[in-house]
Design a protein around this nucleic acid. Structure first.
Lengths: 114, 114
DNA sequence: ACAAGTACGGATAAATTTATCCGTACCTTT
DNA sequence: AAAGGTACGGATAAATTTATCCGTACTTGT
């Protein structure tokens, strides 16, 4: 995290959306967390294509950007839960719009991205 | 364009949305084109922060993905126009959702991305 | 004691995207 | 004829994101 961005974010709303949402697994993570998959291990099992490390990194970014919150329960066996924040919930319509348009148009999308 | 993607696109709709929409200037380009800014030179003047070359590359990708169409008018002085395709128009609600949420939350977004 | 579960993160390589620099061609205005 | 407009694209460097490899610590069940 000792990385300082060099290409600036512009003063448009959607530039910031890029910044917080354009990670490889972020939409997937937000979707699962919104649907009650709250623990890191669970999320990793739900998204087997992603490396464990990458999910960690992207979860940390989502926490930093206050889209999700992280609660560490100090129990015998370590337990962590991620939840959407109010801010994250307000983003959910955006995420769902992307997911739904993608699913509705998947046939066309497969064709044009070949 | 002799580049072959190595990280595969998954079978989810939103993965394809990433593929076609996650370029630095794509939302901006789609927005302007939807609002009648149709010529490459015009678009470059509207988006002075972007290099000319990058816009070209991203416009070509949008054409390849059939989000916009390109018409070359064979006139004395070269004239080119980009227009949204029907497919591109169907994407517009997604783009607008992103832009609007971003603008509505820009204060918060600036804070969390610091 | 050892295997497997919970969880986290440093360091680096590979892939991908974005920026920069260069050059082309043709037409119009000065 | 030179300057400036239209437009396009190759080659490469820089920035950024994603993947891979490694190691930590603690707990439970065998």
């Amino acid at each position: 995290m000792t990385y300082q961005r060099k290409i600036p974010i512009l003063e448009c709303g959607h530039e910031y959306v890029r910044e917080i949402l354009y990670g490889r697994w972020k939409i997937t993570l937000i979707y699962y967390i919104a649907n009650g998959v709250s623990r890191p291990g669970e999320l990793q099992r739900k998204i087997p294509q992603a490396g464990r490390r990458v999910l960690d990194v992207q979860l940390n970014q989502l926490v930093k950007h206050e889209i999700i919150s992280k609660t560490v329960y100090d129990e015998a066996v370590a337990r962590v839960e991620y939840r959407l924040t109010a801010f994250g919930s307000s983003l959910l319509p955006v995420v769902m719009t992307i997911i739904e348009w993608g699913n509705q148009n998947i046939k066309e999308l497969k064709r044009v991205t070949r």
